[in-house]
Design a protein around this nucleic acid. Structure first.
Length: 415
RNA sequence: CGGGGUGUAGCGCAGUUGGCUAGCGCGCUUGCUUUGGGAGCAAGAGGCCGUGAGUUCGAGUCUCACCACCCCGACCA
């Protein structure tokens, strides 16, 4: 991609009221554009990052389930049937904007904040035998939650993207077997995203459902919203909400010996048990023809939030620093008064299948360098009168530059 | 929802005890010079001062209401 193709420019300045690092840098670098409190357009660079994050999630989920795309609009009836229409206070619904025409459709719909209420009856339609189970289906989509207070850029929005996987089982034992199998899938995702070391599986409350505890994945982050009690040695943490004296006794943990840190929740897995299958009368026939309730689990990961967390985690004084796996491009190419040479290298890199962003603007060197630092692509290549037939290589996180032959550059980038 | 703050040019901001033609920087346009860390000079274009009611001879400035956004808390992926 050429920088001149992108109609969303970087900016030298940004509103002083943007305190959150991810909101500030992503806005300044032209990755996102805010439309409302807690709702952002993904611009070309931001969309590339988000897509890569979601593809990493997708690769792991494809090992345990199949992907579908569901509607965001949901019938109110489904939410009434689960009893959640009145109780979920972040629920949003549509309202027709005007009633000028008599034949106008005035039906109101739920804007789905999560999809249990839709997927349960859908799966139940054709899967009534023990032979059909277990089932595991996921989706990566935009979800809507009327948060009382959207904040911190991508960390908490009213419209955000999230992966949800739903699983359906013949028994609690089978559900828990699957539930346990999800943990390594989640760890693999955080590992690939570059935050594996700082992300801990965390015991949290089971909420309104029938299990006592559930698990979250928390990334240690000063600007995180949650407080967790961290046991670094055993790589496990406890959400503050489950650190009462009773919890301590039940779990056999001495919380006073643990480190208290701020963290951001980047995933959760939850045994739903039979809450939704009961609400939607989803039963299956076992070997004896007896009807039994289906056991369900749900497994979420907020992809837009992850993008924000990763910015917060790695940014330095000059801008963002993307892990290789999700950087919008593998390399940024800058030409300094060497447009033809730039185009030549740009074409070669592209032909080799390397993702390259070419800053082909008619800008001064300083402006291009500053923007490259801000955007945070892992490798910066420069061609100019100084570099001759060679190419200057600089890693985003280093101050060292080196002159390399084109072939060497291609070799290095292939890895 | 409680508390605190902010709405003035595309973006970032200033605007005195109410005063006449509303400024500055960035960006944008044109020209010349410059060219490896956000260039210089010159000439331009660009405003319903968030919205609505008041007070006043006169409101960006004062009053009230509303809306939006940011921050703390409560709540939540």
């Amino acid at each position: 991609m050429r920088v001149t193709q992108i109609p969303f420019k970087t900016s030298k300045m940004v509103a002083s009221e943007l305190v959150s690092i991810n909101a500030k840098l992503l806005t300044q670098a032209g990755f996102i554009h805010q439309e409302l409190a807690g709702a952002y357009t993904m611009l070309p660079l931001g969309l590339r990052v988000l897509t890569k994050i979601e593809n990493i999630i997708r690769a792991q989920m494809d090992k345990v389930g199949v992907e579908i795309n569901m509607t965001s609009l949901a019938p109110i009836a489904n939410w009434q049937q689960s009893g959640r229409f009145e109780t979920v206070d972040v629920l949003m619904k549509t309202t027709p904007a005007n009633k000028v025409s008599a034949q106008k459709n005035t039906t109101e719909y739920v804007l789905s904040p999560t999809h249990e209420d839709m997927i349960t009856p859908m799966i139940a339609e054709g899967n009534r035998s023990y032979k059909d189970l277990p089932i595991s289906v996921y989706q990566i989509q935009t979800k809507f939650r009327n948060e009382p207070r959207a904040k911190s850029g991508l960390l908490r929005g009213r419209e955000f993207r999230m992966k949800d996987l739903y699983s359906f089982h013949v028994s609690e034992a089978d559900l828990m077997r699957f539930y346990e199998a999800m943990k390594p899938r989640y760890s693999a995702i955080y590992e690939k995203l570059g935050i594996g070391n700082d992300t801990y599986i965390t015991l949290a409350s089971g909420g309104d459902f029938t299990t006592e505890y559930s698990h979250e994945f928390q990334t240690v982050l000063d600007s995180g919203e949650d407080t967790i009690y961290l046991d670094r040695e055993n790589r496990i943490a406890y959400n503050k909400e489950v650190t009462s004296p009773e919890d301590a006794k039940k779990l056999g943990v001495d919380f006073s010996k643990l480190e208290i840190v701020r963290a951001s929740e980047v995933g959760n897995i939850f045994p739903l048990m039979t809450k939704f299958s009961k609400a939607f009368n989803y039963t299956y026939a076992d070997e004896n023809g007896t009807q039994n309730p289906v056991f369900m689990g749900c497994y979420g990961i907020g992809s837009t939030r992850l993008m924000g967390v990763i910015v917060e985690k790695f940014a330095d004084g000059k801008g963002m620093v993307w892990p290789k796996a999700i950087a919008p491009f593998a390399v940024e190419l800058i030409d300094i008064n060497a447009h033809e040479r730039g185009e030549e290298i740009y074409t070669k890199l592209q032909d080799t299948g390397i993702e390259v962003l070419w800053d082909d603007r008619d800008e001064r060197a300083g402006a291009k360098f500053a923007d490259a630092d801000l955007i945070g692509i892992p490798v910066r290549l420069v061609v100019s009168a100084k570099t001759g037939d060679q190419i200057e290589w600089k890693d985003r996180t280093s101050d060292q530059t080196q002159l390399l032959e084109l072939n060497t550059v291609l070799e290095r980038l292939k890895i």
